Amino acid sequence: MRKLFPVALMLCAIFSLSSFAPVRSDAPAIEKTARRYSFPISGTTDGTPGAGQPAGTIAYEINGSGTIPSSITFRTLSGTSLGTYPFSLSSPGNYLAGGMKTQTSITAVYFHISNACGTGYCVEFIGGI
């Protein structure tokens, strides 16, 4: 009877281990993707370059560090500054800058980190002309 217990224990262990499957070599792995952008980020958008001015194209430049934007600066295409506006964190990975409506006709700028935009970030201009 004493020899039966170790044999039964060993058979149970072998039987329970036989149900485990080995790890597949093609198993998906979680990888951190590299950030596909760096500051400054520049471009153009539609706006009004100052009160009483005709609507047109204005230039912007977003400054920041790492993945966090710090401010956005607007300029006319001839280089006249329309102001610099700070970004604030609205939720993780989402940043909002406001207060530029008088100078640009844009109510706010929404910057959020997203690979859905293809560049690693999206910039949305809210309340433009």
Score class of each variant (00 low, 15 high):
G56K: 05
A55S: 14
R75I: 07
E31Y: 06
L4W: 09
Q103Y: 03
M10R: 06
T119D: 07
G120D: 02
S105D: 12
A13M: 15
S91C: 11
K101N: 07
P28K: 14
M10A: 15
P69L: 04
R36F: 09
G120L: 03
F125N: 00
A8E: 04
P40S: 06
R35Y: 13
S91H: 10
G118N: 05
L89E: 15
T104E: 02
I30Q: 11
S16Y: 05
R35C: 10
T107C: 01
G98S: 11
I30D: 08
S38C: 08
F15W: 11
F125R: 00
G56I: 03
D26Y: 10
A27Q: 15
G83E: 02
R2T: 12
N115V: 12
G127E: 03
E31M: 13
A34Y: 12
F111C: 04
T33E: 14
M10E: 04
L17A: 15
F111L: 06
T76G: 04
L77K: 13
L82A: 02
K101G: 00
S16F: 12
M1G: 14
T44S: 11
I113E: 01
Y110I: 04
A29N: 14
D46T: 09
R36K: 12
R35K: 15
L89M: 14
K101F: 07
I113D: 00
G98Y: 01
T107N: 10
G98K: 04
S70C: 04
S91W: 10
P22L: 07
S16R: 12
C12I: 11
S105L: 06
T107P: 00
A51Q: 13
L77T: 13
Q53A: 15
I14C: 15
G66R: 05
S25A: 13
K32T: 10
N94C: 09
Y95D: 01
N94R: 05
Y110N: 07
D26A: 14
V7T: 12
A51F: 09
G52M: 09
I58S: 01
G127P: 03
T104K: 00
A116W: 04
G56P: 01
L9N: 04
F125M: 06
T48H: 01
Y121H: 07
L77R: 12
K101M: 08
Y85V: 00
A51V: 10
Q103F: 01
S88M: 05
L82M: 05
E31W: 06
T45W: 01
S25C: 15
S81W: 09
I129T: 13
I62V: 13
Y37N: 08
T102S: 10
T67K: 00
L89N: 13
E124Y: 03
G127Y: 02
D46Y: 05
S19C: 14
R35P: 08
A108T: 03
K32E: 10
G128Q: 06
G47E: 02
S91R: 14
S70P: 01
G50S: 05
R24E: 10
Y110C: 01
S42H: 07
T33I: 12
Y110W: 14
F87M: 02
D26V: 07
I72M: 03
P92K: 12
R24K: 14
E124I: 02
G52L: 08
T73W: 04
S19F: 15
